[in-house]
Design a protein around this nucleic acid. Structure first.
Lengths: 248, 248
DNA sequence: ATGGCAACCATTGTATACGCATCGCGGGCC
DNA sequence: GGCCCGCGATGCGTATACAATGGTTGCCAT
C-alpha cells in the first residue's frame, strides 16, 4: 500500500517513466518490498485466511507484471502463508487444526530450546531493544491496534530467536510465528490476543538475569497459554458432511 | 559442465513435442519430478557445491521452458540447496562453516527432541520399514555407492521425523538433512561417510523398545559423531583476507 | 610488456502474448 | 417447474521476445 509509485494512472502510454522509476531502485529490492507488503498484510490480518489473491489484481496494484507477482506468491506459498491450488489461484492459507497443533508444538520445542543460548549470549543492548519492542507492543495493544500488536508480537519472538545466534533456527521460528498469526486469525477469540502484555517483559527479565532454565520454562507456559486461548474447532467449511448434518 | 546426468529416464528424443501438448494435466507433476531430479542430484553429490546451473541448459535437458526452471530454482533456493546471485545465475550452495554448525545444532535440537514422540507412536510396520531402509543403506555403503548411501541416510532421518506425527517439524528436518548432505560434500572426509552403518539399526532398536530417552541420547551421539567427522576449515575461497595474510 | 579501455557476448530478469481449464449462467428439454 | 447441457467469460500456466547487466576478450597506449 506504500509502493504505488505511479501505478494505475495512465501507465499505458508513458510506460517509460514508471519503468525508469522502478528499475532505478533495484528489481530485487522492489520485489522484497512487495513481498513484505503482502506478508505484513497477512500477518496483520488485513488479509484474512481464505481471501483470494488474484494475480493480475496484485500485479496492477503494485505496478509490476504478473511474472513478478507469481514469484512472490510462490515464495509465500513455500512459507505456508498462502495456498496455491492448481488452477484456482492463490488464497491466504486457512490453517487446519492439525497444522495449528504442529506449529505450536514446534514452537514449544524450538523456542524453549533456544532460551538457554539466548540467555547466555544476550547483551545489554539486546535487552534494551527487546524492552523497546515489548513497550511498543503493549502500547499498540492499549491503543486497540490489534494488527500492529500481532505483528510486533511475532517480531518479538523472531528477534528473540535471532539472538540465539543460530540463523537457521531463527528463520524457522520466524516462519512459525507468521503461521501462528494466521492461526490466531482463524481460531483466536476476539478480544483475547495471543500474548499477554506483561509476559514478554517478564521473559526479558529472566534472560537479563541469564537464567536460561526459567526463561525456557516461562516461554513454555507462555506458548501453552496462547495455544490454550484458542478455540480450535474444526470448521470443515469446505466439505460439509451433508450426511451427518441432515441425518441418514 | 557436469549436468549431463540430469535425467535418468530416457526421455531425450520425443520430449519437447510431447510435452508441448502434455501441458494439460501433468504440468505440476512434471515440475515436481524435475525438482526431485535436481534435488536428488544435489543430495547425491552428483552436482557438487559450486556447480553452476544455467537456466537454459536445464530447460533444454528437461524439455521445458526457462519459466518452469526458474520456478524450480527459486524453490531450491528457498530451501538453501542452490544459491541465486542477482545476475550471475544459480549454483549449488556451498555452505559456510557457520551454516554447517547451525544446521547440526538445529538437527541436534529437533531430531533429539522428536525421539520421545517417535518412540511413543512407532508401529511394527514402521519398524519394518525403517529396518528395510537401514538395510538398503548398508548395502549401498558396502557396494561403494556413496551417492545412494547418502541419499538413503537422509531419507532415513527424514522418515524418522515423519513418524513423530508433526508434519511441520518433519519437513524442517527434511530440509536440514538435505543441507547436511551438502555440508558433507564440502567438509566431509572421503571414505568416512556420515552415518555409521550400524548406528541406524541400534537406533531402531531403542525406538522399538519405546525407550525415547535412550533413543534421543543415541541420536545426539550419532549427530555429534557425524559433525565431529567433518573437517571444518573455513576455506574462504571467495574473500581471502589479504590484510591478515600479508600482514597490515 | 603491461595496464587500461571499450566493444562484444553470454546470461539473466521482466513483460507480453497465447492456449487451456474451470466456473457461472442462460436456455432448452424432460 | 426443475434439471441438464452448452456457451461465454475469467483467470491461470507456459512459452517467447526483449531489455539490461556483468564478464570477457582483444586492442591500443604508455
Amino acid at each position: 500500500m506504500n509502493q504505488r509509485q505511479g501505478l494505475a494512472d495512465g501507465e499505458a502510454p508513458d510506460k517509460a517513466p514508471a519503468r525508469r522509476l522502478g528499475k532505478n531502485g533495484d528489481g530485487a529490492e522492489r520485489h522484497e518490498t512487495i513481498y513484505r507488503s503482502i506478508s505484513d498484510a497477512i500477518i496483520e490480518h488485513r488479509l484474512r485466511p481464505g481471501a483470494r489473491l488474484r494475480e493480475d489484481a496484485l500485479a496492477e496494484v503494485f505496478g509490476i507484471s504478473r511474472t513478478g507477482i507469481r514469484k512472490i506468491l510462490q515464495r509465500l506459498a513455500l512459507e505456508q502463508l498462502v495456498t496455491l491450488t492448481p488452477r484456482r489461484g492463490a488464497s491466504v492459507t486457512r490453517p487446519t487444526a492439525d497444522e495449528a497443533k504442529d506449529v505450536f508444538d514446534a514452537r514449544q520445542m524450538v523456542e524453549c530450546g533456544l532460551m538457554p543460548d539466548v540467555a547466555r549470549r544476550i547483551t545489554p543492548e539486546d535487552v534494551r531493544e527487546l524492552r523497546d519492542m515489548a513497550n511498543r507492543e503493549r502500547e499498540a495493544l492499549k491503543a486497540g491496534e490489534q494488527s500492529r500488536a500481532i505483528k510486533l508480537s511475532a517480531a518479538f519472538h523472531e528477534r528473540l530467536a535471532q539472538l540465539s545466534g543460530n540463523a537457521t533456527l531463527a528463520a524457522f521460528v520466524g516462519q512459525l510465528c507468521s503461521r501462528s498469526s494466521l492461526i490466531l486469525a482463524v481460531y483466536g477469540n476476539p478480544g483475547h490476543l495471543g500474548c499477554e502484555s506483561h509476559d514478554h517483559d517478564d521473559l526479558i527479565g529472566y534472560l537479563e538475569a541469564r537464567n536460561g532454565e526459567r526463561a525456557a520454562a516461562f516461554m513454555s507456559r507462555h506458548l501453552k497459554a496462547i495455544e490454550a486461548s484458542l478455540s480450535i474447532v474444526e470448521e470443515e467449511a469446505e466439505a460439509p458432511d451433508l450426511q451427518s448434518i441432515f441425518g441418514a
